[in-house]
């Protein structure tokens, strides 16, 4: 279980406070721009360090760990792939970030590409892929890293609605056991795949609410945001 315990964080006038537990499955993170959604993800990933409180994974304090040691995988909006490496090499980085991939790494990378439906694209550069294909390649790498926590910061927001829905279904089907936090602006994304929703506004992080309850009986603040 992912837990943020009494976390407080301040940077140049912006403050964020969070005291929540995130169950496994997909959790949507929703709220107005500048409210702290990305900061919340950065604190979990280790890009930012809280001023107070702890970030825990299965009761283990992640505080002293660098981002690479945190068992957290991240999908950004852009720049998920290195433009000078072909798709296969990009995916294999998930297994061998510091060395040349072994032949076993390479065959596992091929298998991951097959699972996301990118067989045949191994030796293309990211620039030669469509947005949806780039997202699939990045997802293949996340599959390989096999980390229990996956953070998606508007990862598919550049895709059209149909393609985005397809990618979200793929994430749900391929990562059934992970704890996934998904920042999104679109309530439909949450309704489609998320079991619960976290509402973030003005630096306040509300505890997760089951998706149906979140939209059927929204609180005052949520109603203001949705309308």
């Amino acid at each position: 279980m992912l837990r943020l315990e009494g976390v407080e964080f301040a940077r140049g006038g912006f403050r964020l406070a969070a005291d929540i537990s995130v169950p496994s499955g997909i959790t949507a993170v929703i709220g107005p721009s500048g409210g702290g959604k990305s900061t919340l993800l950065s604190l979990i990933a280790g890009f930012e360090v809280p001023d107070r409180g702890r970030v825990l994974w299965d009761r283990r304090d992640l505080g002293p760990l660098a981002p690479g040691a945190r068992l957290v995988a991240v999908l950004f909006q852009d720049n998920n792939l290195f433009p000078h490496l072909d798709v296969l090499a990009n995916v294999a980085l998930g297994l061998a970030p510091r060395t040349r991939p072994t032949s076993e790494d390479v065959s596992r990378a091929r298998a991951a590409l097959e699972r996301v439906g990118l067989t045949g694209f191994e030796d293309r550069r990211p620039g030669a892929l469509s947005g949806g294909q780039q997202s699939r390649a990045a997802l293949a790498r996340v599959l390989l890293t096999d980390r229990p926590v996956v953070l998606m910061d508007e990862a598919f927001s550049a895709l059209g609605p149909a393609l985005r829905g397809e990618m979200l279904d793929l994430v749900r089907d391929l990562l059934p056991d992970a704890t996934i936090l998904m920042v999104t602006h679109d309530p439909d994304d949450a309704l489609r795949v998320a079991q619960q929703v976290i509402f973030v506004e003005e630096g306040r992080v509300a505890p997760p609410v089951p998706t149906k309850a979140f939209f059927d009986a929204p609180s005052e603040a949520v109603r203001r945001y949705l309308e």
Partner: peptide, 16 residues
């Protein structure tokens, strides 16, 4: 900056 963040989450060292 995302590239450096990506490198960090992949646990790359200075050589990588």
């Amino acid at each position: 900056a995302e590239r450096f963040r990506l490198a960090a989450t992949l646990d790359m060292d200075a050589g990588a």
